[in-house]
Amino acid sequence: MKAALVLPSSAQLSERYGPMRPVLGTNATELRREQRSTYTFALLGGKTLRESLIKDSGCTVLSIALVEYIDPVTLKTRYAVHHCAFPVEWATDHPVRLVAESAYEDAVRAEFAAPTLTLSREQFTRGLASFYDVTDVQF
């Protein structure tokens, strides 16, 4: 007998625990402009739990990371999805890790579906495994 664990969708998790809070990017309206750099440093100094990368000539050109960090205003642990691909950078966070994990996987799949970078055709041949140089998300 095989048992399968069925996790709720992002929509179900958001309905139950509330939506992800925009921290960086154009939708980050809850934060004052002067707080954005503080949040950027907090995210960059946080603990990376999961990460998907695209590299070019040894340099990272796209990074989507699930980060555990301390909110610089409330001093509480939060979990963020940080997407960085110059010139696009955004981050959302939530106090519940499961909600952030689901949002991370959604962000990785969304980047594959609609890339922000111009990439070669070869990177699309085998799904997420060939699209990202490093990823832990299964399609």
Rank of each mutant, 00 (worst) to 15 (best):
L43P: 05
Y17N: 14
T118C: 02
A110G: 14
R126S: 13
D136M: 03
G127C: 09
A42C: 11
T60V: 08
R16I: 13
E105I: 08
E51P: 00
T38F: 04
K55I: 04
R16A: 14
L75N: 09
E34N: 05
V88T: 10
Y17F: 15
M20K: 06
C84T: 09
L43M: 08
A114R: 07
Y104W: 07
A28Q: 13
F41A: 14
T74M: 02
R50G: 00
A107Y: 05
E111N: 14
L119I: 04
K55F: 05
R109D: 15
E68N: 13
I70R: 13
V73T: 03
V88N: 12
P72Q: 10
T116P: 02
V81H: 00
G127Q: 08
T48G: 03
D93G: 03
L49V: 09
A28R: 12
V99E: 05
V81L: 00
L75G: 01
G45V: 04
Q35H: 04
R109I: 15
F86V: 08
Y132G: 01
D106I: 11
D71C: 05
F112D: 12
E51C: 01
F124P: 01
L49M: 10
A103S: 04
A80F: 01
E30V: 15
A113C: 12
Q35C: 00
A107L: 05
G127P: 04
T125F: 09
G46M: 07
V88C: 06
S52T: 13
H94E: 06
T125H: 12
A91P: 00
S63V: 07
A103H: 03
R21V: 07
V73Y: 00
F124N: 07
Y69A: 13
D106V: 13
Y104N: 08
A114D: 09
G45I: 02
T26Y: 05
R33D: 06
R109P: 14
A85G: 11
T48E: 13
E34A: 06
L49T: 06
F124A: 06
V73N: 02
V96E: 11
N27D: 15
L119N: 06
S102H: 09
G46T: 07
T48A: 08
C59A: 10
R50V: 00
K76D: 09
F131V: 08
Y79S: 00
G18P: 03
L31D: 13
